[in-house]
Design a binder for these strands. Structure first.
Lengths: 210, 210
DNA sequence: GACATTTTAACATATTTATGTGATTTTACC
DNA sequence: GGTAAAATCACATAAATATGTTAAAATGTC
C-alpha cells in the first residue's frame, strides 16, 4: 500500500486527486492540505511514502514546502506538480531534492504509474520537464580549459595568489627567495596576458585554471 | 514514419534492435553501424529522425560520436544506450546535447515509446538515469549569496576591481578622485574581511557577489 | 654532449596598493 | 530638523607590486 499526502490549494483538483488515488488498488491518501504552512509537523505525523506537492500555493508555496520537508525528512518521495514547465522552478525544485516533477495535465493512469515509480527509487518527469532539464545541462559551459601552458611551479604560485598570499608569504611557503617568486609571477603574467595580481586571479577563476 | 539509424557494436543486439523497430508500424531502420568512425558522413547521408547510439563501442565511442553528430546536425534526436547508469557518461552525454538516455534492458514496448517520445520533443530517460540526473542537480551548490551589504557604489567599484582596473582607472571611469576610490575600497575590504585587491577579487568570484 | 626549458636568484626602480586620520557633502528616513 | 549611512576628497607613509635586466643551476630530451 503506497501512502500519499497531498498539498494542493485548488479544492476541485485536490478532491479529484484524492478520489483517483483512493480509488486505485494499492494506493491510499492519508491526508490532503491546501497549503504548506505546517508541512513539517504534518509530514512527521503521517510519515507518508509519497507527497504530491503543488508548486503554486498561497502562503508557503511548494518550493518552500519542499525545503521544510527536507529539513526533517530526506526519505519521503516528493513529486512536484505544476501547470507550467517553468524553467526556474524546475531547477530550484530539483536542487532542493524533489524526486520528480509532473505537469498537472498528466493523465490519471500515468500519474499512478509515476507515483509508484517514485516509491521504487525512480525519478518520474513528464516529457516536457525532462526536456527542460536537458537544456539546463547544455547551458553548463564545458570546462573550456584554455591551456596557457603554465609550468607546474607556475601553477602552484598562481594557486597561492588566488588564495590571497603575498609575495613574501609565497616565498616562505615554497622555501624560495622572494625574487624567485617575482620572476615566476612575471612569467605567469606573460603567459596569461595580464599585468596585475588581481587580473591573474580573475583569469584563474574565469578560465577555471585551478 | 520514424526513420532510425543505429550505432551498436554488438551484432546480436544490433540485429535485435533492427528487427524490433522494422517490425513495428510507423518505424523503419535506415541503416545500422558497428562504430562511429564515419558518423558525420553517415548522418548527412541518411538524415534520420532518431539515432540510437551505444555508449561503449570500440574505435570512436558513443560520446565522441554524439559530439561529431552535433557538429553537423543539431536537429536529429540522439538517444544514448548503455548497460550501466554511469554517472560521468550520463553527464557528458547530456551536456553534449543527447536527447535521451536509456538502459539497454529497457523493454521493447518502452523503447518504441521512447523513440516516438523523442521525435515529439520529449527527453526520454529510464527511471534510474533520471534519478542520476536529479542527484547531479543536488550537488550544484546553492548560490550562497552571503550578503556583505555592499552599497551600490561599492559594488560598482568591486566590479571594476574584478575587471582588472587600477585605482587610477577606476577614478577616471567613475569621475571621482583617486582618494575617493581608496576610501571605497577600504570600506569594501572591511565588509569582505580581506586586505588586498586580489583577495577581494577572489572573494567576489567565490561568493558570486557580482 | 648539446639544447631547450624550468627553476632558481640578485639588483634596481617606478608605480601601485594598504592603512591611518581626518573632513565635507549628499542622501534617505523618522 | 536631527540622525545615520553613503559618497566625496585630502594628506601622509609604509608596504607591496610591477617591470627591466641578467644569469647560474637543475632538469629533461634528442
Amino acid at each position: 500500500m503506497i501512502r500519499v499526502v497531498i498539498y494542493e490549494d485548488n479544492p476541485q483538483f485536490r478532491e479529484g486527486l484524492t478520489m483517483l488515488i483512493n480509488g486505485s488498488d494499492g494506493f491510499s491518501v492519508l491526508a490532503s492540505y491546501k497549503n504548506c504552512n505546517n508541512v513539517a509537523e504534518e509530514v512527521e505525523k503521517w510519515s507518508p511514502d509519497v507527497i504530491l506537492m503543488d508548486i503554486n500555493m498561497p502562503g508557503t508555496d511548494g518550493l518552500e514546502g519542499l525545503k521544510k520537508i527536507r529539513e526533517v525528512n530526506t526519505e519521503v518521495k516528493v513529486l512536484m506538480l505544476t501547470v507550467f514547465d517553468d524553467n526556474k522552478n524546475v531547477f530550484e525544485a530539483l536542487r532542493n531534492g524533489a524526486n520528480g516533477y509532473l505537469l498537472k495535465k498528466t493523465s490519471p493512469a500515468k500519474l499512478l504509474e509515476y507515483i509508484q515509480d517514485a516509491t521504487l527509487g525512480g525519478a518520474p518527469m513528464t516529457s516536457s520537464i525532462a526536456t527542460q532539464v536537458l537544456k539546463m545541462f547544455q547551458v553548463i559551459p564545458q570546462t573550456k580549459n584554455q591551456d596557457y601552458c603554465l609550468s607546474e611551479r607556475e601553477t602552484e604560485v598562481l594557486q597561492l595568489l588566488v588564495d590571497g598570499y603575498s609575495y613574501k608569504m609565497i616565498a616562505s611557503e615554497l622555501f624560495i627567495a622572494i625574487d624567485t617568486v617575482r620572476s615566476h609571477i612575471k612569467k605567469i603574467y606573460e603567459k596569461l596576458h595580464v599585468n596585475s595580481k588581481s587580473e591573474a586571479v580573475a583569469k584563474a577563476f574565469k578560465d577555471k585554471l585551478l
